[in-house]
Amino acid sequence: MSKPRIATTSLAGCFGCHMSLLDIDERILELIDLVDFDRSPVDDIKHISQRCAIGLVEGGCCNEENVNVLREFRANCDTLIAFGDCATMGGIPALRNNIPLEECVDEAYRAGVTVHNPEKIVPDDPEIPLLLDKVYPCHEVVKIDCFLPGCPPSADTLWTALTALLSGKPIELPYELLKYD
């Protein structure tokens, strides 16, 4: 019997959730016996190659590319998990949600004390994705089946959730594994 496949991605996040996944430490070796990895930043599979049992999404949506990737995950994953505060509630990137985007861009590319930008340009090449007006948590863009909050969720939280899912049991997080910070 083939093993269930797992895909992971980081959208508008800091990668800390993926790092926390690596913090399962030696259990990684157990995990790769249980599952096959599909698209993930830790391998070189650039797009989901076949149906996946589990999709793990870190980060919310701050640009058009994030939305496209999130939709790719929704379309190809049986259970889609938003992991980490950025995915579940927007997180730190959402701090820009009540500031006009133009002000954020100005501060970074025009006003900074070390900025050398005589023509006052801002990054706008067609090669870089358009920014969304606001940063959106994942469940406001696609249906999310499971939420694992935390900044990041601890390795034990992720391990508890993944092993429950893989054995077909409901995810039950003990008190010490449910945190928002």
Binding site: M89, N98, P137, F147, P149, L173, K179
Partner: peptide, 17 residues
Amino acid sequence: AYRFGITAPQYPFQFPE
């Protein structure tokens, strides 16, 4: 929220100013 086991709010975020 921890005691109640809330993993994510069910309502849309307002992000009020």
